[in-house]
Design a protein around this nucleic acid. Structure first.
Lengths: 341, 341
DNA sequence: ATGAAAGCGCTAACAT
DNA sequence: ATGTTAGCGCTTTCAT
C-alpha cells in the first residue's frame, strides 16, 4: 500500500501537487500531471478514503436505505443507482430495513451519522420529520424515491394516475365488472401505495359512471401467493364474477393469471388481467401492464444527488420530479365479449 | 455535529477516555464510562468513521461483491450478510458486477483498495489469483461464498452432492427417464455450477445403472423462461418423453411445471419435477426441492469474516466450510406410475 | 505552477 | 484508571 509521498517522490514533486494532479482540483501543468499519473499507476496507488474523507469531509460514498431487498423492484432500483454511482466514482452502502423497527432506529441514529456517507437515497420510505431533520442538519443531501417527502428532493410516480390509466385501459376494452386486487392497508410502510392505487382505480370507474362495487375489491399482501388466493375468491363468485382484474403489481397479476388458469378460465378470453411494473416475468406471461422503470429511477436519483452535492445548485425545500410510466399492452387483456360465459 | 472533545468536556474527562469508554478498548471505571455515555448521547455524538478509520486502519465496513443483484439467491445472501453485519456494528458496501468486465476491473483495482472496507465477501465469484493477491496483500481478509478459491476461506455447497440427492430422489420413486434442465456452460461466471450439477445428476444415474441419455439433457439460461422453453422441447418428444425432470434451480423447475401444464401434463401424475434452492415461490408451486439456505450463507460468511478480522485466529490458506442442504419433499414429485401415459 | 505546513477528528502508546 | 501527545494520510490554505 503505497502512500501519497511515495508517489510524490517517484514523480519528483510535492504531495500537494500529487493531490492536485490526481483530484483535478487546482492548477497543475499537463506535464507534471502526466508524470504523477504515471507514478501513481506504477505504484498502484489509490487514495485512502479515510484520510481523504477526514481532510475534506467528503467520503464519495452514498447510503441507500430500502425497506426490503427481496423484491424485484428494489433490486432493480439499487442496480440502477449502483451503476450510476460507480461511474461517478462513488460507492454505495446499503441499509436494508426489513429487519424491523429497532434496526431502523439504529440505522438512522448511528450508522448514517458517522460520516460514512455524503448523502442518502431513501427508497419508498416515508421518513419521519425527525429522520429528515437529522440528516439535513448535518448537511447530508437526501433524495427520496417513491413519494413526497417534506423538505427533501424526491422522485415519484403518480400512483393514482398509473392506476387510473390501467383501469381506463380495461374500461376502454368494454369491461365494466372490473375487480381490483390491491395491497393491504395494514402494511403501508411505503407511501400509501395501496391506497393511491385503489383511488386511481375508483376514480377511473367513477369517471365513466361505473359504480364502485366493494365486493370487487380484494386486499392482500402484495405477493404472488396472496393475489392467487384473493383472485380465487373473486373468480369463484358465481354471480358477480369480474370480467377483468386490475392488480396492483405484476407479481399479483401473475398470481391472478395462475388462479384463473386453475379455475379453468382463459386469459384474456374469459378474464382480462393488467398489472403494474413491467416485471421481468411480465413478458413471459404476456401480461399487459403499466411499466415503471425502476433502474431508471435509481439512476435518476443518483443524478439528482450529484447535483445536490455541489452546493451551488443545491435546491432547498421539497421538489418533486415526476417519474415516467407507460402502458404496455400484451396479451392478457382483450375486449370484453358479452357472449363469453 | 459535536466532536469528541465536546463530549470530553461535558463529561469532564480527556478525549482519550472518551474514546476508550465508547469503544470498550482499555480500562475505564464504570462510573466514568457511564458519564461519558450520557454526555455522548446528550450531544448526539457519533464517531467519525473517517477519523477513526484513519487512526486505526479499520473501517467497520465490509465490501460485498456479487455478480448479479436481480436474482432471488443473491438478494437473500445479502440480506443475511447485512443483518449479521449490522449486529456487529459493521456497514455493508455493495459492489454489483452485473455491468460487465470493465466494471469488474475498476472495482478490484480502485474501489476495493481505497481503504473503505476492512474485508471482502465475494459471492459466487471465481476471483482470479491476481484479484485475490491484491486483496490479501493489503491484508484484507476475503471470504468466498460458493466455491473453492485458492488462498481464501470459503463456504460452499457441494453442488455435485446436491444434484445427486435430487436425482436419487427421483430414482427412488421409480423414475428412469429423468431429464435434466441445466445451465448453459457458456455463462459460467460462477463456479461451474451448471457443470457440477450435471455431474451429480449423471453420477446418480450411473450409480443405479441407468445410462445417461444426452437427449434428456437440456441446457438453457438459468431463468424461468429459458427452462420453460427447454422443457417444452423435452416434453414434446413423442417417443422419449421423460417421466421426471431435475431442474438446476427452482425458477427453472417452476418454468418446467408451467410448460408441463401448458402441454396438458399433470404434475406429478404425468411428470415429477424437482429443483434446487427452496425459492420463495417453491412452496406456492408445491415444488419438491433441495433447499440451500442463502440467508444463512450470508450470515455464516460474516461470522467467518469476523473471526478473520481478529488476527489471532486468522486461518491462512484455503479452508472450505461445507454448506448445509436439505431435501424438501412437496407435491411435485411422486412415484412413477408405469400405467400413466 | 508548485511547495511547506497546518490541520481534519480520532486512537494508542506512553506517562502518571 | 486517566491524561498527554504524536501520529494516521490526505487536502488546502498560504507562500513563493
Amino acid at each position: 500500500m503505497p502512500g501519497i509521498d511515495e508517489v510524490a517522490q517517484l514523480a519528483g514533486v510535492s504531495t500537494a501537487t500529487v493531490s492536485r494532479a490526481l483530484s483535478g482540483r487546482g492548477h497543475v501543468s499537463p506535464a507534471t500531471k502526466e508524470r504523477v499519473a504515471a507514478a501513481a499507476s506504477e505504484l498502484g496507488y489509490v487514495v485512502s478514503s479515510s484520510a481523504s474523507g477526514l481532510a475534506t469531509g467528503r467520503t464519495r460514498n452514498v447510503g441507500v436505505v430500502i425497506p426490503f431487498l427481496n423484491r424485484w423492484f428494489y433490486g432493480a432500483v439499487i442496480e440502477g443507482a449502483q451503476r450510476r454511482l460507480l461511474s461517478h466514482g462513488y460507492d454505495l452502502t446499503l441499509y436494508n430495513l426489513s429487519g424491523g423497527g429497532d434496526e431502523r432506529r439504529s440505522v438512522f441514529e448511528h450508522f448514517l451519522l458517522r460520516k460514512r456517507v455524503d448523502a442518502v437515497i431513501a427508497i419508498n420510505l416515508e421518513l419521519t420529520p425527525d429522520e429528515v431533520t437529522r440528516l439535513l442538519d448535518i448537511d447530508k443531501p437526501v433524495v427520496g424515491v417513491g413519494g413526497p417527502l417534506t423538505g427533501v428532493r424526491t422522485l415519484s410516480i403518480d400512483d393514482v394516475e398509473v392506476s387510473r390509466l390501467a383501469t381506463e385501459h380495461l374500461v376502454s376494452l368494454g369491461h365494466r365488472r372490473i375487480a381490483h386486487i390491491g395491497g393491504d392497508v395494514e402494511d403501508e410502510r411505503d407511501f400509501h401505495v395501496p391506497t393511491n392505487r385503489r383511488e386511481g382505480y375508483e376514480a377511473a370507474l367513477e369517471a365513466v359512471g361505473i359504480p364502485v362495487d366493494p365486493t370487487l375489491y380484494a386486499p392482500c399482501d402484495f405477493t404472488l401467493q396472496g393475489a392467487y388466493h384473493a383472485a380465487k375468491q373473486l373468480l369463484g363468485s358465481p354471480r358477480n364474477r369480474p370480467t377483468a382484474v386490475f392488480a396492483a403489481s405484476d407479481e399479483m397479476a401473475i398470481g391472478t393469471i395462475l388462479a384463473a388458469r386453475d379455475m379453468g378460465l382463459r386469459v384474456p378470453d374469459d378474464l382480462s388481467v393488467i398489472g403494474i411494473d413491467d416485471h421481468e416475468l411480465a413478458e413471459f406471461f404476456g401480461l399487459t401492464t403499466v411499466a415503471q422503470f425502476p433502474e431508471l429511477q435509481g439512476e435518476l436519483a443518483v443524478e439528482i444527488l450529484m447535483d445536490q452535492l455541489h452546493p451551488e445548485n443545491r435546491a432547498h425545500g421539497s421538489l418533486n420530479t415526476p417519474l415516467p410510466y407507460e402502458l404496455v399492452v400484451r396479451g392478457s387483456t382483450a375486449r370484453h365479449d358479452p357472449r363469453a360465459r
